[in-house]
């Protein structure tokens, strides 16, 4: 599909804002987290999120999550028009609770990972990813 960078950027209704101020949170992201956790408290340790500090192109940003023992990890992009990215549910034959994928970011923003740990508690990790704007539309 012809998802040009400009269109990807335009995905964010307030795309211009993202260059000035990274989205720290959005109501929709908060809602998604609440739905996933049932409102439980979020620990800082237990889930690791790997994402580039600067993404060469917001269309294809490599990310990885790791949460030893977790049953599920949800990934959100707070500044996208819809914050959902993916939810990884680990089965009994997962050798580790790790996974990587490639995602779209509508602009500079926070990527958030929420893990449901083995004991039923939840952990959170977040990374700010800068999305660069090229000069060539070519």
């Amino acid at each position: 599909m012809d998802f040009t960078r400009r269109e990807t950027l335009a995905l964010g209704g307030a795309a211009a804002l993202t260059f000035v101020l990274p989205f720290r949170a959005s109501a929709a992201a908060d809602d998604a987290i609440a739905e996933f956790t049932g409102g439980a408290a979020l620990a800082d340790a237990g889930v690791e999120l790997t994402a580039p500090e600067i993404a060469e192109n917001g269309n294809t940003v490599p990310i990885a999550v790791s949460a030893p023992g977790a049953t599920a990890v949800m990934v959100l992009a707070a500044g996208n028009p819809t914050p959902g990215v993916a939810t990884f549910n680990f089965g009994p034959l997962a050798a580790s609770q790790t996974a990587s994928t490639r995602m779209r970011l509508a602009g500079t923003q926070d990527v958030i990972a929420i893990a449901k740990l083995a004991d039923g508690s939840f952990a959170r990790s977040a990374k700010t990813v800068k999305v660069t704007i090229g000069g060539c539309g070519g």
Binding site: F3, V85, N89, F90, T101
Partner: peptide, 29 residues
């Protein structure tokens, strides 16, 4: 799945890039 048992079950949202890519680890019993 491996022999009917789940390794990973992923829900994808529109923020996953064109040509979805996943990497993960499985145990082979």
């Amino acid at each position: 799945e491996f022999n009917g048992q789940s390794v990973i079950d992923i829900t994808l949202e529109p923020a996953i890039s064109t040509n979805p890519y996943f990497e993960f680890e499985a145990t082979v019993p």
